[in-house]
């Protein structure tokens, strides 16, 4: 699936970037947007997607969103982090 088919408030693991514009793949890489990394969809605004990569918010258009191929991140992968958060909160 591509990021365009993703749902709000979900985390996805990037499996491939298919951007054909020269330099775009490399640029996304420097933002931390590359296969294996996590991206989450915050919301959909004005036909653009608001995504979170590392600790920053970006607005990307549908064209770019459809060039980012993702897999839904398994719950198991997010669980340890969640648990850590809970531990911290109650510590």
């Amino acid at each position: 699936m591509t990021l365009l088919n993703g749902k709000n408030n979900r985390k996805y693991e990037i499996s491939e970037i298919q951007a054909n514009e020269e330099g775009m793949k490399e640029f996304l890489f420097t933002l931390g947007c590359y296969p294996g990394e996590t991206v989450s969809i915050i919301s959909q605004l004005a036909s653009n997607l608001i995504i979170n990569v590392k600790d920053a918010r970006y607005s990307i258009d549908a064209h770019l969103a459809s060039a980012i191929i993702v897999e839904p991140q398994l719950q198991a992968q997010t669980a340890p982090r969640l648990k850590q958060e809970l531990v911290e909160q109650f510590a």
Binding site: S43, L45, N52, A56
Partner: peptide
Amino acid sequence: IDSSKQTAQDRLDRFVAHK
């Protein structure tokens, strides 16, 4: 705070940058 969670700023964006 997990930065991938929605914040008040994101809620503001839903208006300011609404279609």
